[in-house]
Amino acid sequence: MHPAPSVILFTVLSGMGFGLLAFLGLGWPVPAPGWMAFLHWGLGYGLAVGGLAASTFHLGNPKNALKAFSQWQTSWLSREAWTSVATLVILAPVALSDWLGLGWPRGLGLVGAVLAVLTVGTTSMIYGQLKTVPRWHSPTTPLLFLGFMAAGGAILSGNALPALLACLVLAAALIAAFHFGDTAFARAAQTTGSATGLGRIGKVTVFEQPHTSPNYLMREMIHVVGRKHVRPLRLIALGAGAALPILLLLLPASPVLFALIAAIHLIGAAAARWLFFAQAEHVVGLYYGRR
């Protein structure tokens, strides 16, 4: 699948943002009123909203974006629209209370934290639901997205122990996604023979392509270029995303250290998300004799 920069940016940044919002909603920590609270909540909202804005860049026709709220009964993308906006709205009074030190009850924060988790869950299911992309159609997909959310949120909120645990879970999720993902296409057992139904006669190979230059399908779903350098990118994803943060989290905590860990983690998250898209193979490639 085509690793569109806007989608990679959106899913990584908004995942971290909603992770931070979830921790702040839980009151873990409750930042000191004034600048501290403003910076914490501002960062969470900035990442989450910035990610949502980035996601509209890959739409062909963004002027109808409001209609995306209508089909929540069947569409994970529509559900994501609802949960994301609901999270941002419900947490707003909590943020205001923290910022101005109003001391309002934190019940809404709990609801907001749950909604933030649901938001990232719905994002992951947009990909996880697709039977046409065997690598994505797996429990490792929500595990990866929620793992990055938890790790990113814990690091940004300065919670050393949760960050450590989340990074451990994330490392396991990454290894599982790489391991099971590599055999997913073969396990789905679709071939050019089953795609055309001509496998009943014999071995099917492409004789001539239907068009001379790539079309939308090939650019979007048969994106082979991004699959180079898989091994180094996997090392970066695992190393910068989870392993290095784990080592650094064992050092005495300080705001500077957490900022460093966050920057390193972000690089790993971006590498992992690049691979998530670039390595995903769509069954439509079978018609073109490619994957």
């Binding site: 062909g60 026709n61 697709l130 779903m221």
Partner: peptide, 26 residues
Amino acid sequence: DACIGCGLCAWACPYGARELDQAAGV
């Protein structure tokens, strides 16, 4: 008139039946 051109339907189709019109964005 209601399409936002997100492309998710084309991703969900195993047969490559849908193509995004690059000029119309739908």
